[in-house]
């Protein structure tokens, strides 16, 4: 059958090629990016933070390499302060994907007992920024997938899909490469590495919609439920375990959920009744504060993301 006849056949069958949806195009792009990395990098790894973006990224990785398991391990740079529900899903998700799970905790942060209550920004620096660099160096990974998206905030709008880092993990704005068509230049010198963002072009709504369509399991904290909370500095914080130092406060049960997940003492909840995915999506579309507002980390300083990126944090 010649090609034109085939296209006609396609259109008759109602699966006209003209109807690749935006999610299908995004999915194909992400898969393409992941395969490029696996074909060109020596030792890739996927950074897995157990959030909804990580969940989608992991799902896409399974799609990209099926029937093989994704040919790289998952790396969780742990701060020891994540929500308990995140640790539970993390271990199960890795097992179901048939992937090795590496958990790294910065030994220096463990020794010094770094925590979000006493150490402020140092908590993120030591556990996440330093921890990530240490883990990548320790295992010798030369490519690390991350789940950042360009719609998250202004400074990410211009981020490349392949982001190059020097041997000491610094992001040098001058050494970033133009990205044309589907052609990604993954060549690098020894010691250099790259961070790769396969879901760069997804928006928050795309992520939710895809989770909904594909039935991807996410941490239950994204759905509303009565949970013990205190209010500090305008953020609703969940008292997730006994390490939360109460300053004479009595935790109050509130119906809350989280729009973004990080360390529980740093992640603000929203009061909500949205207990199902469609309800969560509906609430997201109707409410009008942007996603990252719930993260204390971004309020540190104005140009915070730019600075953190240069230092090696995502």
């Amino acid at each position: 059958m010649n090609t034109h006849a085939k296209a006609e056949r396609a259109e008759e069958a109602g699966v006209s090629p003209a109807r690749l949806t935006h999610l299908e195009r995004l999915e194909a792009e992400s898969i393409h990016i992941m395969r490029e990395v696996v074909a060109e990098a020596e030792k890739p790894v996927m950074l897995y933070s157990v959030g909804k973006d990580s969940a989608v990224m992991l799902h896409l990785a399974r799609m990209a390499f099926h029937p093989s398991p994704p040919p790289f391990p998952l790396l969780h740079v742990d701060t020891t302060w994540k929500f308990r529900a995140m640790y539970e899903l993390r271990d199960r998700a890795a097992r179901e994907a048939g992937m090795e799970l590496l958990v790294y905790k910065n030994p220096e942060a463990i020794e010094k007992g770094i925590n979000p209550f006493d150490h402020g920004p140092l908590h993120t620096d030591m556990w996440k920024t330093e921890g990530l660099k240490q883990a990548l160096s320790l295992y010798g990974f030369d490519a690390a997938f991350g789940g950042a998206r360009r719609d998250e905030e202004k400074s990410r709008a211009k981020e490349r899909v392949f982001s190059f880092r020097s041997a000491n993990h610094r992001w040098d704005p001058k050494s970033q490469r133009p990205e044309l068509w589907k052609l990604y230049n993954a060549r690098k010198a020894k010691g250099e590495s790259m961070r790769v963002f396969p879901i760069s072009n997804w928006t928050e709504l795309d992520i939710w919609q895809y989770i909904h369509l594909e039935g991807i399991e996410i941490v239950p904290l994204y759905f509303s439920a009565p949970r013990p909370t205190v209010i500090r500095d305008g953020l609703i914080l969940m008292v997730d375990d006994e390490r939360f130092p109460l300053e004479g406060e009595e935790p109050v049960m509130r119906s809350i959920r989280f729009r973004t997940l990080g360390c529980y003492p740093l992640t603000g909840a929203v009061e909500s009744e949205a207990a199902t995915l469609p309800e969560v999506i509906q609430e997201m579309l109707l409410t009008t504060t942007s996603e990252r507002q719930g993260r204390a980390i971004d309020h540190d300083q104005a140009a915070s993301m730019e600075k953190k990126k240069q230092e090696g944090y995502f």
Binding site: R19, L20, T21, H22, L23, R25, L26, L205, Q209, H212, L213, P278, E279, I281, Q282, L285
Partner: peptide
């Protein structure tokens, strides 16, 4: 009707 909206959004092109 959030479900109907999701179906509509799902079929959008890019």
């Amino acid at each position: 009707d959030i479900d109907a909206y999701l179906v509509q959004h799902q079929h959008k092109s890019l």
